[in-house]
Design a binder for these strands. Sequence first.
DNA 1: AGCTGTGGCAGGGAGG
DNA 2: CCTCCCTGCCAC
Length: 765
Amino acid sequence: MRLYLRSDDGIASRDAEFFPFFHIADPTLLEGYPKKLWLKELSGDKYYRSLAAFTRWSDMWEAVRFILDRYTDRLKVSAASYLDVPALLLRPDPVSQYLVQSGVTLFNGMQFEDLHRFQLDIETYSGRTSRFSDPDRPEDRIILIAVSDSRGYAEVLDGRALSEPEMLSRLFGIITEKDPDVIEGHNIYNFDLPYILRRCRLHGVEPMLGRDGIRLKPSDGRQMRTERAMEIQIQDIPGRHIIDTWLLLQTYDHSRRKLESYGLKYAAQHFGFATDNRVYINPDRISWTWDHEPDKLAAYALDDVTETRLLSDLLSPPYFYLSQMTPFNYGTAARNGSVTKIESMIIREYVRQRVSIPSPEPTHPTTGGYADVFQTGVLGPILDIDVESLYPSIMLTEVIFPHSETLGVFSAMLESLTKRRLQAKREMKTAKDTSQKAKLDAVQSSFKILINSFYGYLGYSRGLFNDSIAADRVTRKGQELLRGLISVIGEEGGNVVEVDTDGVFFVPPPRLRTEKAEARFVEKLAATLPEGIVLTLNGRYRSMLSYKAKNYALLGYDGRITLKGSSLTSRSIERFGRRYIRQCIEAILHADVSALHDAYLKLYRDISSNRLESGDFSKTETLRDSPEEYGADVAAGKRNRSAPYEAALRELGSWRRGEKVSYYITGKDASGVGFQNCRLSDGWDPVAPDENVQFYLKRLDEISRKFEPFFTPADFRKIFSTEDLFGFSPEGISIRTDSVVRDEEEGDDSEESRMAGEPRIWLDA
DNA sequence: AGCTGTGGCAGGGAGG
DNA sequence: CCTCCCTGCCAC
């Protein structure tokens, strides 16, 4: 056994802190030890030969004891349960979480196609209308299990022919027999697997999903804080990898932001692999369909697993290749963040060179992206340009890297990944074979995933090599580039409408008549940027409705309208409001003032005469905090009472963190306090509607007020009112376009304006 | 154990 | 009334 400790020439800036680790390498000596201890990746024994591991299993405990003896006051020691790691360690804080691999990587030489992938989807029954099926309620249960695999197999286990325990046993039988490497599902982490496990517990069936049983992780419940949060109960299915296409879809959309929902059916349509005869069933009609058209439900479930496989075909390959670059196995690589991956790669080099690792520095608030709106109203035509990979490009051209990272791994990695990505993209273009093309595309996407998080790492408070001053320099440079671009566009006769971080929407100079001329103009703009900063034309639009910063609508040359921004699209706006906003924007973009008035009038009448359904005026919100946390915060005066929580307290009593509830406002007048006048939407009765008409009419007017800036006050009052006894006429009403006046340099408070221009970073004197 | 960042808009309640 | 604070959601 060799034990490496930080050497005196280590690079940690604070000498008092260091991180010992041990490293033992020689895989062959591991043979003869119990499989359970050293087999983790069970895609077939042949892949284990490349695994580095401890010389002897007992060495690990020897090392732990050694460290404990010396550093017992500082180290919180935990034994890693995996042996596919040659180095581990144990320290008070972050490093311990990283599995460090020194040499050869898992899955080396394997292709994505080599994996045997298995898809799984369950349909469940709910005895109560419009509530999710609950695995802890005896009346609720699994009614169908659809399975398929990447080798053409597909089957539906049917609750009509089999009891629930029989279905479960059959499922485990199939999995054991097929013995796949990967189990895939849409939202499988949050729904299918936990549901299956709970039912297994209920029936006393062993959940034999893995090659060696299933391992559970007690949920600590602390993970619900973040957006991506989930209540993962499954730590691992030994021997198999779990791929959740729902998670992959979110990650995919994080950088592209094109998806309106993360539903499987929506994704299948978005990516264009939904078939014409696909069966669609409204989620809240599943139980009804089971009672009345069970065959239809079976067909639906089968379509689900098919689409899951196709979605996975598209989204999961990059993670397979990431597992070849990082010390994370396939399933983990598809689940953890990219910052973790980058850091593990850096640490790997430090381990290899036996240089110690610094601890994270406290982070300071840093400058962010530059966002601004210069014009509001309807403008066109519009060009959308953006700087490609703005922050990574700045880091490379300006040579901005963490100061504590002395080996230069960070910059070398970013450079090499960028180079290799470009190369993969080039090869992809010339590749003849479609499967080769697909592989290269996956490889270049996997590089992109890493490249995009180098900047984020700088400001990440728990990054071992973080450097928020460097992060601030990057964003400042980004702001500088954008401002430069804006002024050049202005000088050339363009009219900048809206800017955000790395992109600009502008009206090109009127002298440009053709698409070609626009492209040449963009090339000219690109030429004004420094070497290494690439500007591209992202899109062309017939017109744009500019509302506020980060809030706008685009009308494409194909007639399609896209809305952006929380004030126009947010799910926290009632459905009737979102629909109404879209109608209004469509009308404004087409300069159809009558349509605006009609939309207002119709909605006004629908609300007044209770013609809307609860789904139209309900709000659906996530209960992020548990009943206890909410109660405590309210009692402590840290937060106000709010309608969704109060309604849930009254009607449900309790809930799980992260559960969503729909509620609406009741009562007679619009001035009441919301949390005292609300009900869960389940209780709404179309025969005796009790929604607060006055309140929702007020909401209609509030929402209408968004369009105030586009009209003169008199015109606005005419359009958005019901007072048209003598008929409404759009005559003489036009849509306003305004330059946004900003009160810079007002001089009212010189201290404040000076501060605004100052770095937000402060350094110790 | 597992967790990238900042900036902007909006609604609701409490308190001046 | 208005302002402040908190929370949620969204753009990049």
